[in-house]
Structures are given as C-alpha cells and as structure tokens.
C-alpha cells in the first residue's frame, strides 16, 4: 500500500461555505432588489460556489494545470455567452 503525500484538503470547510452561500442565495432571492443587481449578485454567488467545487472537490487547485485549461475554457465561454445574452437584453430594454 502506497503512502499518501498530499495535504488534508479543507473539504468540510468548503462544504460549510457552499451551504452558507446557498442560504445567502435563497435570502437574496427573497429581497426586493433592483432586478439587474439581483441577477448579477445571484449569478456571482453561483460562480463562486462552482469555483469552490471545481478547485477543491475536483482538485483543480492541486492537479495538473492542463486539466484546469480543459475544464476552464468551456466554462469561461459559457460565462461569456451568459454575459453577452444579458447585455443584449439590457440593450433591447
């Protein structure tokens, strides 16, 4: 049996962070905020949660950088597409 060399990752702390951010999201959704501010705020919280999962649970923070590029490029393109869509809607409105 091989021995483990990696550090103890903060899995439980990340879980508590994800749970807290989800609670904040539900709270923010119930507030009567400016619609644009609400959408930007909620999407930002979702992006932070997704990054926490990718960096710590999927080990991108510790793993080979090429894997971050493989997973990161479509993720960045997805966010770019969402921003374009939102900007387009704001221009129409």
């Amino acid at each position: 049996m091989a021995t483990t060399t990696h550090p103890k990752y903060p899995y439980i702390r990340v879980f508590l962070g994800l749970a807290a951010l989800t609670a904040v999201e539900v709270g923010v959704a119930g507030l009567a905020l400016n619609p644009t501010l609400r959408v930007v705020g909620l999407l930002s919280l979702a992006i932070i949660k997704a990054l926490l999962v990718a960096l710590f649970y999927m080990h991108l923070r510790y793993d080979h950088r090429l894997l971050s590029i493989v997973g990161g490029i479509p993720f960045v393109l997805a966010i770019f597409m969402l921003i374009l869509l939102l900007l387009d809607r704001m221009m129409v409105m």
Partner: peptide, 22 residues
Amino acid sequence: VGLYWHFVDVVWIFLFTIIYLI
C-alpha cells in the same frame, strides 16, 4: 466517478439559481 459527480453538482448550482431564484 467523483469528477463526474462534482460536475453534476456544479450544473445544479447554476440551474438552481437560474430556474428557481432569478
């Protein structure tokens, strides 16, 4: 299998926000 499972979690993070909260 963990990578796949965490990805499913990430997708849900966005679906929950976009469908239910926004």
